[in-house]
């Protein structure tokens, strides 16, 4: 149905406050941004409007979307670099150039715009999407700036087709803010040196790999041992029996006390080696147990068929198992370790 627009001009600023807020609620995000540039009063009106519960994410990925509005971690709206560049004239700050010498999004440009948008929509920066091939200087600057503006981010997602391990390591060396969920999606098809994330005191760590051709070798056992995570999901990786044996022994002796679920896709395992030096109880395949774990925005249920029960020093029981060994012919299979709650 076509609706003829109302007759312009229309002095909407003379309307009472509630209808004005209602009008702004009906704007899309870019129109809200444009409206805020009209005057200080317009900016105040926008700031006083409850524009909904969003998380704001900042992205340094090459896809040219700097600011993203997420709701329940789903991208709802994005401000592209080009649309922000067109509006540079309205920002009373020096925002040129928008790219730095390495053709990365200039931090100066990002700072000005992220601060303006966060202030306008009255939301703190919650998501940080980084380009895994960024330079060391860029990563350092981003971490330092983030330290200065927030104490916690909900999601830190590092991804890319190319990876600069030193840059990513430097980012974690510099970052002092806490992260709830850390996601690595590194799609490089070549070997890279290990990435050191320091002590990962994070709720969820996800290391995603695209193919099993290049299993991840940069996320090391030492990194797992120095972590304190609730869930750790690692895609195709090079962990062997000795590595997993170290991880399990470390958990039994009290490391990683918050751990509820550990998942890694590995080559077929010899459980005699995995459980070497560990007391265990082999459970019959007919014993079916289900474990619900938080994974990003959802809850995922995993089923254990039998498996090996191990016990931590404080009495907490966990089950380990390699799944799907006989189901399909493939090279790598998921190894899972589920920790049962004490009431189980």
């Amino acid at each position: 149905m076509n609706v003829a627009p109302g007759p312009p001009p229309f002095p909407i600023l003379k309307l009472p406050y509630i209808p004005l807020n209602n009008i702004i609620l009906n704007f899309d995000h870019l129109t809200v941004l444009d409206f805020s540039f009209i005057s200080k009063r317009c900016r105040l009106i926008v700031k006083s409007t409850n524009l909904g519960n969003y998380d704001i994410g900042m992205s340094f990925r090459p896809d040219q979307y700097l600011i993203r509005f997420h709701r329940k971690r789903i991208v709802f709206f994005e401000f592209s670099i080009s649309s922000l560049r067109k509006r540079n004239k309205y920002i009373n700050a020096e925002v040129k150039p928008y790219l730095d010498d390495r053709k990365e999004i200039s931090l100066k440009f990002a700072k000005v715009w992220v601060e303006y948008v966060c202030d306008l929509f009255r939301i703190g920066l919650n998501f940080l999407l980084l380009n895994s091939s960024a330079s060391i200087e860029h990563m350092s600057s981003v971490a330092e700036w983030m330290n200065s503006i927030c104490s916690n981010v909900c999601l830190c997602d590092i991804s890319g087709d190319d990876v600069n391990s030193d840059s990513v390591t430097r980012f974690f060396e510099k970052a002092t803010f806490s992260i709830n969920v850390l996601v690595f999606e590194l799609r490089q098809e070549y070997e890279i040196s290990p990435i050191h994330c320091g002590v990962l005191n994070i709720d969820q760590v996800v290391v995603s790999t695209i193919t099993t051709k290049t299993p991840c070798s940069w996320f090391t056992v030492d990194q797992v041992l120095t972590s304190n995570c609730i869930t750790m999901m690692i895609g195709a990786c090079t962990f062997g029996e000795r590595d997993l044996n170290r991880i399990i022994k470390s958990w039994i002796s009290g490391n990683n006390p918050r751990m509820e679920f550990f998942h890694a896709v590995v080559y077929p395992l010899d459980f005699e080696l995995v459980l070497d030096g560990i007391e265990f109880e082999k459970r019959d395949l007919t014993l079916i147990r289900r474990l619900k774990i938080p994974f990003l925005t959802k809850q995922i249920e995993y089923t254990f068929f039998g498996g090996f029960d191990i016990r931590r020093q404080d009495g907490t029981v966990a089950t380990i198992q390699q799944m799907g060994l006989f189901e399909v012919p493939r090279v790598l299979f998921p190894f899972r370790m589920g920790v049962w709650s004490k009431n189980f």
Binding site: G6, I12, I23, N26, D28, F35
Partner: peptide, 13 residues
Amino acid sequence: CERIARMLRGKNT
């Protein structure tokens, strides 16, 4: 209000 918003939506500053 939706009608007025529609009038302004997509317009630049």
